[in-house]
């Protein structure tokens, strides 16, 4: 049972990790708190649903399309909203993504109603039974994709020139312009990449999860706490924070009750803050 819980926790945690890495990336690079990350996941889920219903695409196949659309959407949001807000007072910078998230959730509620939807048929179904652990293939897909996306992100940020430029932007904005990196370009890319990752998370989450306009809200809350837990600005910390959140979430739900999971997650966060104010990996 414990092993089963850990597995389920890692599955949900791997999705949370995708959300929290996006938040950490955006925060690290441009000091914007992205409250709309959960809604990007939700839109990713609806795109997946749309591709599935109208074109018969399996969620896995639609990942590249969804990712590209979400990247474009992220760039558009950056160009039209974030870039402008960054010129304004700090409170606007903090609130703008919150406002965007409200508009997206309620806009979607008007557009598609709060009806729960699911993807009726997916390629990978069935279970693998190890005796001590039953793995459903629908949950294995999100896990694998999350690991791949995370690996790709780390390679991109550490090995490519553009990735290094984005890191340079987060490390020192003054020096970064002096070596010829355009700060706004880095911002735009970071925002686009973070939304593409959230969209991809939406794709694979729809493999076994219901789709509704408010689905992103709880993912955002847990994702934010995961980032704070890992230490703001550290993408690796955000990833570990996400996994941890998932495990705590599942354990609290199974051994106490589902209502308790918010208590458990927030209590864990408070504990970490009181003992390590800068988070587990913050310096």
């Amino acid at each position: 049972m414990i092993i089963q819980c850990i597995f389920e926790g890692i599955v949900i945690g791997s999705i949370l990790a995708l959300i929290s890495m996006g938040i950490a990336l955006i925060w690290g690079v441009m000091n914007v708190l992205s409250f709309s990350q959960g809604e990007f996941l939700m839109i990713g889920m609806y795109l997946t649903f749309f591709f599935n219903k109208n074109l018969g695409l399996d969620p896995i196949i639609s990942i590249p399309f969804t990712a590209v659309i979400m990247f474009a959407l992220g760039v558009l949001v950056y160009k039209t909203l974030i870039r402008k807000a960054l010129k304004g007072p700090i409170l606007s910078q903090r609130l703008i993504t919150f406002a965007l998230s409200m508009v997206l959730v309620n806009g979607m509620l008007m557009l598609v109603t709060s009806e729960f939807r699911t993807i009726p048929k997916v390629i990978f179904t069935g279970t693998v039974d190890f005796g001590f652990l039953v793995i459903s293939k629908e949950k294995l897909v999100p896990l694998m994709v999350s690991v791949l996306v995370t690996g790709a992100l780390f390679l991109f940020m550490n090995k490519t020139n553009i990735g290094k430029a984005i890191r340079a932007t987060s490390l020192n904005k003054d020096a970064e312009e002096l070596v010829g990196i355009d700060t706004e370009f880095s911002y735009m890319l970071a925002f686009g990449i973070a939304s593409a990752i959230a969209g991809t998370a939406g794709c694979v989450l729809s493999y076994y999860y219901y789709i509704t306009p408010t689905v992103g809200t709880s993912f955002l809350l847990f994702g934010l706490i995961a980032v704070a837990l890992g230490g703001f600005g550290s993408i690796f910390g955000a990833y570990i924070g996400g996994l941890l959140m998932g495990i705590v979430d599942v354990f609290a739900g199974v051994y106490f009750n589902t209502a308790f999971k918010y208590v458990a997650v927030c209590a864990l966060f408070m504990l970490v803050v009181s003992f390590r104010p800068k988070g587990l990996f913050g310096k």
Binding site: K164, A168, L171, N172, D174, A175, E176, V179, G180, I181
Partner: peptide
């Protein structure tokens, strides 16, 4: 950011290196 293309490079006061990057990566940047 367009200055380096013109051939102007500035070494700022306080050095402003990318502290969490390796020396080689700093140079490549």
């Amino acid at each position: 950011y367009k200055m380096v293309e013109l051939g102007i490079a500035m070494v700022p006061e306080g050095r402003l290196l990318f502290g969490k990057m390796t020396v080689a990566d700093n140079l490549r940047m």
